[in-house]
Each structure stands twice: as structure tokens, then as C-alpha cells.
Design a protein around this nucleic acid. Structure first.
Lengths: 343, 343
DNA sequence: GGCCTTGATTTGAACGATCAAATCGGTACA
DNA sequence: TGTACCGATTTGATCGTTCAAATCAAGGCC
């Protein structure tokens, strides 16, 4: 009899169904090995007792924690949260289907270090890691690789073209689609508000804008750059405004930048959308809240693909021949609207 | 010799230091039981091999997962993220010091159900849960209590005054401080932009405003209410504007509402701060980004206290006599500024 | 010198699951 | 009738750790 107030174990089920522990185990993991009649009886016992295998015991036996570490930079650029928080949400939801769970952990410092990873890995609290926002000189990919620790990355790992365990959003395609969208709506010239050149993500998005202009034949409008910060964005937007003709549009490298432009347009008495088009990037809550047209990152898809990559790595399957580049989706808001077709 | 490429276990350390497994274990958990000389030798071996006990093995042995479940409502009101994401960050950071980690999990539905909790608990993936945003009729606290599952709550559990395992922010004190701040700066009347009455949190914050006006002797300004949504907030703010005199201020139930008012003020050509004071609530990124004066929730403190509560519960210590009500902190932004003392 | 106490260390057992190998019962075949 | 075989089931061992009990060595005391 299962002692009440005590967890029901495989042994309790075995006794109840008058079989051995192993048969119960087989019912759950290798049902074909069990005679149909027995299967049914054991399944009934499992249901009656509400048995669920203990994850601790399974972890020890299988040498798998069933967990994946995700670093969250609380002290880093605040804007990170804008993407990382929903992404962690997507991961947590999807992970359940992959039979694992996320373990967020923080590194106190403002720049990514391997200390936190080291601590989680040494005790095997996790089987793998998911990293994001890697940049040139990021110590993490190399360290993980050297120590044979499975990991996957949201964002290309620029330092090591050999590494294919990444999933990224096709930024250039996104800004390209944004330009096409503006061209379709009839905006005259399409400008660009981006980040200072040098960041790989930023350069990619800018390239998509330039290529989009060339492809659609729309004139490239004025261009400015600033940091990922609302105040900076507003200052840059003000510089941009002078050169911005009526019925021009601006594609931005992020929703924060788009919001800065949006605010400055209103301050200058020019209505976003009907007078000047604004397209953001990221599909953040901020953009949705302000009804900005934006390029949405398919976070659910990214999470799914990343978890698949980790499953493969943990199963010892070889890495894919190349990383996954997912297509973002243009999300129409009120900051772009159809022009009267008078040109 | 520890087989390379294989995890170093307690056994490896024992061999290296020429002692038994148990002595190594004692060195880490009961150092006083070990002769100083031996202690040193074993510690050296531990350091040389870089031994860290396996968390899976410890979990099985101690019947403790060392993890705490936190539900994240991805599909719920988006504004939840505004507070919950940073809160999860604080929890994750603090948890490390408490020897545990967070496991975020999602429930697909939009209203809180116990299914997700049930699944995590059945397999003992977690030892306890942290719940937030409980409301009247919330099934979770009662269910957790019934099943003897340890938990703590961010936010009072209104349905059960007996339950003291909660930590909350003193909302009334926060809005009261906001009123005092406005009075100090010399604003004439202080209005209120809140949520429809009926929500416990909202009613609390509104009460603080009313009491604050009475206490400081400042005249209560006009009042409006709306949902936690930027569009709604702007509509309500527009209604408010008509009744809003020059040099009046408005205390808001949330940063989103404050932002709505901020935007409408600009649209009406009235400058936030110098002309009309605006105070938000939550200390969210949105508020910081827009330099709104806001009432900041001490998330780190809350996380710390909640983890303490869980430690107590897991150790079988009795619940505190009452819940913890923490004081929020007023964060000065540009949306309130000193009036010229001409009255 | 023998016996008891104390402190340090070791051995045995257990946590709950699953893999591998052993056992069991029945059927087919010579 | 005996044996080889096959599917179904059970037993033994293991993952890495820690509690409880056993062992061991040294010192104190009569």
C-alpha cells in the first residue's frame, strides 16, 4: 500500500498491478515489450495511483538534467528585455513539448562572462545552453565549444563560421520587406534610422534597406544613426526630420528607434503614417502598444528550431550543414498607410 | 584515475585523497566532523580535480529538486511582461544565493489554471511555486494549499486572509508618496487616472491617492478610469484634460496609463512636468525610457523575501504572523518638476 | 592489562528509475 | 520426449550522493 502523504513510486504501481518494477518501467518507455493484457492492467494502476516518474531519479539514471540554461542580462542594456523576455517565454512554452525546461540565470556583470555557465555546468544543472546576442570577441561560443558543452545560439556566431548551431532572423530580408511595403504604399523616398556601423546585426539590417531600395526602385531617403536608446533616437530623428520630405518613409533598425522618430514627428506636427511612414523592427510590445508598423521576429519558430538543434546535439547527431535563417514577418500598424496614388 | 572526458565524482576525489566517499561528503557538508589534517588534504583534492557534487544525485538523495516553478503568462495581458519579466530576472539572480533556480513554465490558456502546476509537481520538477497577480476566485492558492504544495505569492492572496506567505508592495503608500511629491513640488490639484474599481490592486492604489490628498491638504483633482491599455489610457486622458487646470498633476495607477496621459498632453500642446505633472506606477522600462516620474516596485527585495518565505516553508518552519508589505520608492523623472512658488 | 569512552573514518543502505542479463513458461520441431 | 527457441517478465546492478550504523584507533581509568 502506498503510504499516504508520500510520493507514489514505480514500486507502488508494481505492487498494485502485481508485476515487477521493470515491467512498469517498460509500460512507459517500451510498451511493445509488454503483453497487451499486462499493459492494460499496469496502465490502469498508473492511472489509479496517478503515478508520474520522478524527474530526479530519471536525471540521475540517464545522466540528463532535462534542463537548458539561458542567461538573462538583468543589468545589461535594458532594451534587451524587449526581445529576450518574450523569447524566454517562447522557449519555456516550447520546451515542455521537448521534455525539458529552461533555467534562467544571471551574470552580475554587464558583459557576458563564462562564470555563470561554468557554475551551472559543473554541477550538471543543465545539459546545454542557449546563448543570444553574440558579438565579435564574445568569449562564450569558444569556451563552450572547447569544453564540449552543447549549445545553440539565437543569432549567428560571427567569430566562428564553422559553427552552424544557430538560428537567426534574416534582418536584411526584414528591412527589405519594410522598404517594399513602403514602396507599395506609395511613399516617395525611404530613409533609414539605424545603429552606428560596426554591429553585425545593424549592418545586416542596413544592407537590407539599401538593397530593398535598389530592388524596388524607390529612392533612398536620408539616413541617420544612433544608439539603441530612446533619447538618442529622438535626437537622431530630429536631425533626420529636416531632410525628410512629405510622403517619405523611414525604416528603422529597431522599435525603439522607430518610437523615437514617431515621437519627434508628432512633436513637429507631422503625423506618422499619413504624412511620414515609420517602420520599426522586432515586433516588440512597445511597437504593438503604439501601433507602429514593425518587422516581427518569429520567436516561437526560433525557439522551436533552437530546441531541435539542442535535441540533435544531445542525441549526438551531427550539426546541420548550415545555420537556420528564418524570415521575419511585416506587421502592419498605423505608422504606415496607403498614399494617394498621385505621383 | 578519473577517466578523462567523464565527470569527476565524489569517488574520484576519495581515491585521490586516499579516503572514503563519505569523508569527502563530510568535508563539504559537515567539515567539523573531519580531522583538520584530513580536511585540508581532501579540500586540496577537490580543488585539483575541480569537483562539484552532481545536482541530480543530490536531488534524488535529498528529495529536493532545488527548483521553484514560476508561471509566465505569455498570452495573458501583454502588460504583465512589463513587471513579470524583470521580476523573473530578480528571482533568477537571487535564487542562486538561495541554492535554487527558477523554472519558468507557461500555461497556454489566458486564465490561470492549475494544469501546469500539476504537471510540474507530479514529477517533482520543483519543490515549490511562486505565484503572482492573484485575484478573487483564483483557483491556484486554494489548490496549492489543499495539496500541501509549498508556495509564496507576489501580491496578497485576497481570498484567504489566513495565508501569510505573501509579499506585496504597499500600493497605497506608493500613490500617497506620489501625491506628497506633487504637493512638495507645488502642483495645485492632484488628479487620478486609474483602473475601473473592483480590482483589489487598483482600489488600493486609488485609496492611497485619496488619503494622500487628505493628508497633505492638496486638492483632489479630476479622476478618470480605464483599462491597462495605452489606447484606453489615451482616451481617458483626453476626457481628463478638459478638467485639468494649469499646474495640476495626475497620479496614475500604472506606467502605461501615465504614458497615455503623457502622450495626450503633448498632443494638446501641454508639456508634461512643467505644465502638468504626471506620476506613473511600477518603475517599468517604459517609464524609464520616457523619463516619467514613477513609483518603483522594489523587485529585488520582493524576490529576496519571497525566496526566504519558500526556504522557511521547505524547512518546515511556521509561516510568519503576517505577510510582508514592502515600501515602493518614488523615482523622479522629467514628468514632474518644481513649480514656481507663486500661489 | 583489560575495559570503556570518544573521535575519526569507513561500510552498508537507500533515494527512484532504467539497462543488461537471467529466468520463466510455453510452442515448435526433430 | 527432449531440446532449442522465443516472447514476457523478473532480478541484479548502476547512476552519485548522504544518512545511519559499524568499525577502528587512541587515550583514560581502575
Amino acid at each position: 500500500m502506498p503510504r499516504s502523504s508520500d510520493r507514489v513510486t514505480i514500486h507502488d504501481v508494481a505492487q498494485r498491478a502485481a508485476v515487477s518494477r521493470q515491467t512498469v518501467s517498460n509500460v512507459l518507455t517500451h510498451p511493445t515489450r509488454v503483453r497487451p493484457e499486462t499493459l492494460e492492467r499496469v496502465q490502469a494502476a498508473i492511472a489509479e495511483l496517478g503515478y508520474q516518474p520522478s524527474s530526479s531519479a530519471q536525471s540521475l539514471r540517464s545522466q540528463r538534467a532535462g534542463a537548458v540554461g539561458v542567461e538573462i542580462n538583468t543589468l545589461g542594456p535594458r532594451s534587451h528585455n524587449e526581445t529576450m523576455a518574450p523569447f524566454l517565454g517562447s522557449l519555456a512554452m516550447r520546451a515542455a513539448e521537448h521534455g525539458s525546461h529552461m533555467v534562467p540565470f544571471g551574470s552580475p556583470g554587464d558583459r557576458p562572462m563564462v562564470d555563470g555557465y561554468q557554475a551551472m555546468w559543473a554541477r550538471r544543472l543543465v545539459d546545454a545552453f542557449i546563448i543570444a546576442d553574440t558579438h565579435h570577441g564574445d568569449p562564450r561560443p569558444a569556451w563552450l565549444e572547447e569544453n564540449g558543452i552543447p549549445f545553440a545560439s539565437f543569432g549567428r556566431v560571427w567569430d566562428d563560421p564553422t559553427f552552424t548551431g544557430w538560428v537567426d532572423v534574416d534582418g536584411a530580408a526584414g528591412t527589405g520587406a519594410a522598404v517594399a511595403h513602403c514602396a507599395d504604399l506609395g511613399y516617395r523616398a525611404v530613409g533609414y534610422l539605424g545603429w552606428p556601423s560596426g554591429s553585425v546585426v545593424g549592418d545586416d539590417r542596413r544592407a537590407g534597406w539599401a538593397a530593398g531600395c535598389a530592388r524596388t526602385g524607390v529612392a533612398p531617403g536620408p539616413e541617420e544613426s544612433c544608439d539603441q536608446d530612446l533619447d538618442d533616437a529622438r535626437a537622431a530623428a530630429r536631425r533626420l526630420l529636416a531632410d525628410l520630405g512629405p510622403s517619405d518613409a523611414v525604416v528603422c533598425a529597431s522599435d525603439i528607434l522607430a518610437l523615437g522618430l514617431h515621437h519627434e514627428l508628432l512633436a513637429a506636427g507631422r503625423e506618422p503614417g499619413s504624412e511620414v511612414g515609420v517602420v520599426g523592427f522586432d515586433g516588440s510590445d512597445t511597437a504593438l502598444m503604439h501601433h507602429l508598423t514593425t518587422v516581427e521576429q518569429p520567436l516561437d519558430q526560433i525557439a522551436d528550431r533552437i530546441l531541435d538543434l539542442l535535441d540533435d546535439a544531445l542525441a549526438g547527431r551531427p550539426r546541420p550543414p548550415a545555420g537556420s535563417l528564418l524570415q521575419p514577418v511585416l506587421l502592419r500598424g498605423d505608422s504606415t498607410s496607403a498614399r494617394s496614388r498621385s505621383r
